[in-house]
Write a protein that binds this DNA or RNA. Structure first.
Length: 941
RNA sequence: GCAGAGGUACCCGAGUGGUCAAAGGGGCAGGGCUUAGGACCCUGUGACGUAGGUCUUCGAGCGUUCGAAUCGCUCCCUCUGCACCA
């Protein structure tokens, strides 16, 4: 059979049809042993690429492996459709974005189909179909397709409303002011790299300025904004841009002078602001005096043309000892003002700003790149190693890292400062407007900072199975760090209406935390067994908690399902979920579900990237479409590739050449097993017992690996170690039909979770049932003959030794004589191992003492002691496996003699085998004295 | 800003105290099978070695230990996630 003829396309669709027709994916309550696994559902606003299939594949493998161990498996899937992505996509289609249209056409979406996609809801249903039909089913996933759901379906919305009701009851929904990106035309916008809402500024960060109120002699306030309020003690002057026209405004009965844009920003973020419609040229303020609040020192206002009216308030306080910009500016004005050093920091001398400016050779304000670098350097150094000095009176000696908020809070509390938030770079809305930051006075939050919830969640995490283990250690820290999350938003965005504020929609992360529970209902919703308006608080309380009473039989049925399947055993998702999705998934369960219904495990996998660790993307080339790759390599090859190419916990680089290797691997296994099944029967002998033992060893090793989700170990064993051993069996003259059948059957079962189509096709040769629904043999009933396993190890080690001798001596052998160790050496080894096992260590004295109690050994004390001396050093290097190897009882001479013809054909010469104890021994070079247990001596002619 | 990962032979990548000159794969070289082959099989792939051995090696340096790729410290370098994006 030619592996090139392995027609995976037909084979895959043939078996998939059968699985799906027979609905073997459906979760049913049968065995009282359940397993609930799901992956973090994907968003639906575009096609997926080969990288996305990695996690899905892991999930299917685990689910299949569990099924084959007799578990009732629930493996559902759904779509996260809330939020803006699908709206953004629809908008792109609507304005006929050329890239989007070209992509849709490339994937076979026709005009009719494209025109449909101007509606976000159609976007969701279109991609949902693509995911199910072109990705999940094509990959052979045994997802329970009767439970598919989306987060914008009416049933799901009922569920989310109930969830928020529960959060409210637990006092985890709170209201407080929030500052959010806002467009005066479009309302709230999301600022993020994907730039769905905005046209520029996706990387902008929100910076929090402290606006400090410096007073002019007439009481008017000159507000300077700073990110470093603690440096107020070092202020020597103010900077005002003489070319800018400032304006006067009223804010809580105070009169402020600010730039025009500062007024607008303040207006969005503060109450009680009035425009006094009075302008003031910056130049007129130069050389006025202001009083520094808190320390009441007077400083002059100087001309600073660099003060940008669009940054913060447009007015700057000058701290020349710690801000390189200020230092250089002050130097250039030639004013007789001395910097005031307020922070002691090692290595930066009397004046850190000056030191760094000199180090970097900065002499002019125009060297902005260098000045930025200098600012950064000074800031980092001061923040991490600096502390305030005597100039700061009550704060002297405190580290900068600790003081920041203290000074800020003190200023704000004393009404000497306010806060102002601003983007680090310009953010422009889709519509062209500038995006600002607006105060929402009564924003709703989920209170993740709640101490009780955090503590309880941490406690729960300790009991979970989390992969990789390192993530388990990280999680408590993440929970501590996780802050309250604004959970609703007003504007164009799909999702569930927030029950406590009309017109506001629950934000997409907040509506995807408890959702695995909904998979228990989605089946009934899909089958229209339950009405949407029936899904009330009473309903959910009943089915999840058993509170209240069932209104009908379906309620009862659903309650039983919930009781049976919940909690989730594994939630699997990519590494991007580590700091958001998984924490809220845990915390919402802890908040709402009783202890026994909280998640049992999490599996985090890393990504598939393009060469050079770039995030995979079509625009950069190289990435392959899922459907194309599936056709080119075959599904099983891709499944094997994902599983075997690297640990789940590293990023892997997509490389077509490597995937091709796996394609060949799959075809070769197909060819190999076909050959095995066509072997004519030989009688059984020792090698058959060996192969049966090895097969059983592999059954238990792979089962163990599957149970620990150690998929790579499973794949390596199945696809590389097992065929090696079968080859050894053939090489050793094996060829018994029954042995081969037993071995191949077990092998096929083991590979089914990873390469189900291949296994199904081969299994079909000798079975009329599906291997996917078969159950693995019970581990406890597997028989392993240790002596045969050890015997073969002896044979193969001996071959290596002979080979090495031949390589080194370059002798072409005429005759090889093998001497197994004399009985007394075996006795000494056993004594040594026993002693070392008993005592945990071994010393020469002990060993000799024990040896001398045996009269047979005592007779040749001299030789024995020499050998024992050598042994004591070696014994402690042995591990458990070695010890088993030594302790297993085999008659080496007999075992080797039975393999004599194998040695003869291998080395193509005559072979003689003697025990060193044999009286008829032929030992021309006295080699037999080197023989040791498990290491026969060798003589080559 | 907060947090995390990692540097292993020509390459990818296992390995977290002795089984380690270091799995597996790829590449390369030689041989086999073949009309041919990008398919497959075997052998070799740190150095030295006419007896199964010895020596050097796991980013750099120091240390702990009878023993270190593995543990500790210092340094250098690379990468990643998150911040109403799911």
């Amino acid at each position: 059979m030619n592996p090139q003829n392995y027609n995976y396309i037909n084979i895959e669709s043939k078996w998939q049809q059968q699985w799906y027709n027979e609905k073997i994916y459906e979760a049913n309550k049968k065995t009282n042993k359940k397993f609930f696994i799901h992956f973090a559902y994907p968003g639906v606003s575009g096609y997926l690429h080969v990288g996305h299939m990695r996690g899905f594949t892991y999930c299917d493998i685990i689910a299949r492996a569990k099924r084959m161990q007799g578990y009732d498996v629930l493996f559902p899937a759904g779509f996260h459709a809330s939020g803006i992505p699908s709206i953004g996509f629809a908008k792109k289609v609507e304005r006929k974005d050329p890239k989007t249209i070209a992509m849709l056409k490339e994937y076979g979406c026709d005009e009719q189909c494209i025109s449909n996609l101007t509606d976000p809801k159609n976007v969701v249903s279109y991609f949902s179909d693509v995911y199910v039909e072109d990705y999940w089913k094509k990959f052979g996933f045994l997802i329970d397709y009767s439970r598919i759901m989306s987060t914008i379906s009416p049933g799901y919305k009922q569920f989310i409303k109930w969830q928020f009701q529960k959060l409210y009851e637990k006092n985890l929904l709170i209201q407080k002011p929030h500052f959010a990106p806002f467009c005066s035309k479009c309302g709230p916008v999301a600022v993020d790299k994907s730039e769905t809402d905005i046209s520029q500024g996706g990387n902008a960060e929100i910076m929090e300025f402290t606006v400090i109120k410096f007073k002019l002699s007439d009481g008017t306030i000159l507000p300077a904004a700073t990110l470093r309020p603690e440096t107020i003690f070092g202020v020597t002057n103010m900077w005002i841009n003489p070319t800018v026209t400032y304006k006067k405004i009223h804010i809580n009965n105070e009169t402020w002078i600010v730039s025009k844009s500062a007024f607008e920003k303040l207006n969005y973020q503060h109450d009680n602001i009035k425009d006094l419609n009075e302008t003031i040229p910056g130049s007129s303020l130069i050389h006025e005096q202001v009083t520094i609040p808190l320390i009441n020192r007077k400083v002059p206002v100087l001309s600073g043309p660099f003060a940008d009216p669009d940054v913060a308030t447009g007015i700057v306080m000058s701290v020349p000892a710690h801000a390189p910009y200020d230092y250089i500016a002050l130097k250039e004005t030639k004013e007789p003002i001395e910097p005031i050093t307020i922070i002691d920091v090692k290595d930066l001398g009397e004046n850190p700003a000056k030191t760094v400016c000199e180090q970097l050779n900065i002499s002019s304000q125009s060297e902005t790149t260098k000045l930025e670098e200098a600012t950064d350097l000074v800031y980092k150094k001061e923040f991490h190693t600096g502390s305030l000095n005597q100039e700061c009176k009550e704060y002297a000696g405190i580290k900068i890292a600790e003081i920041k908020d203290t000074v800020k809070n003190k200023l704000i509390e004393s009404n000497l400062a306010v806060q102002l938030r601003e983007f680090s770079e310009d953010v422009i809305c889709r519509c062209g407007e500038h995006v600002v930051i607006k105060k929402i006075p009564d924003q709703w939050f989920v209170q993740y900072s709640n101490q009780k919830l955090t503590d309880e969640s941490k406690e729960h995490i300790a009991s979970m199975h989390i992969f990789p283990e390192k993530y388990k250690e990280e999680l408590p820290g993440i929970l501590d760090w996780f802050d309250d999350r604004a959970c609703i938003r007003k504007g164009s965005w799909l999702g569930t209406e927030f029950p406590f504020k009309q017109g506001w929609i629950i934000e997409p992360i907040s509506d995807s935390t408890l959702y695995p529970a909904y998979y228990l209902l989605s089946k009934y919703v899909n089958e229209k067994k339950i009405n949407i308006d029936e899904m009330t608080t009473e309903f959910f309380d009943y089915v999840f908690f058993g509170n209240g009473e069932a209104k009908n039989e379906i309620w009862e049925e659903i309650r039983k399902d919930c009781a049976y399947w919940y909690p989730v055993d594994i939630n699997l998702g990519g590494k991007e979920h580590k700091t958001v999705h998984f924490p809220v998934f845990i915390m919402n369960h802890v908040a709402i579900m009783p202890p026994e219904k909280r998640p049992q495990g999490i599996f985090v996998h890393w990504w598939v990237t393009q060469k050079g660790k770039e995030k995979i993307s079509k625009s950069k080339g190289g990435a392959e479409h899922v459907a194309e790759a599936a056709e080119l390599y075959g599904i099983d090859a891709m499944r094997l590739y994902y599983t075997h190419v690297g640990s789940p916990f590293v990023d892997i680089e997509w490389d077509a050449k490597i995937v091709t290797k796996y394609k060949n691997k799959v075809a070769n296994i197909y060819k190999f097993i076909n050959q095995l099944l066509s072997i004519n029967s030989e009688p059984k002998n020792q090698i058959d017992t060996w192969l049966e033992s090895k097969t059983n060893e592999y059954l238990s090793k792979v089962t163990y690996a599957y149970n620990n989700f150690d998929l790579r170990v499973a794949a390596n064993t199945i696809f590389y170690e097992i065929p090696q051993d079968i080859n050894w069996y053939i090489k050793r003259g094996g060829g018994n039909k029954n042995t081969i059948k037993t071995c191949v059957n077990a092998w096929l079962q083991l590979m089914t979770p990873i390469t189900p189509h291949l296994s199904e096709e081969l299994w079909n040769i000798t079975h009329d049932t599906l291997v996917s629904t078969s159950i693995l043999p019970d581990e406890k009933r597997l028989k392993i003959s240790e002596s045969h396993v050890a015997g073969e190890k002896l044979v193969s080690n001996l071959i290596d030794d002979i080979q090495e001798i031949l390589n080194v001596t370059k002798i072409k052998p005429q005759r090889i004589i093998i001497y197994t160790a004399p009985n007394w050496k075996h006795m000494v080894v056993h004594k040594a191992i026993n002693l070392s096992e008993e005592n945990g260590s071994l010393n020469m004295g002990q060993l000799m003492k024990s040896i001398m109690t045996n009269p047979d050994l005592k007779k040749q004390a001299k030789q024995v002691s020499k050998y024992a001396g050598k042994l004591t050093g070696e014994i402690k290097k042995l591990n458990e496996k070695d010890i088993t190897y030594y302790q297993t009882n085999i008659d080496e001479t007999k075992y080797l003699t039975e393999s004599k013809s194998f040695f003869e054909s291998l080395f193509n010469c005559s072979i003689e085998i003697y025990s060193a104890d044999d009286s008829s021994i032929n030992d021309p070079k006295q080699k037999s004295r080197f023989a040791e247990p498990r290491r026969p001596a060798i003589y080559v002619e």
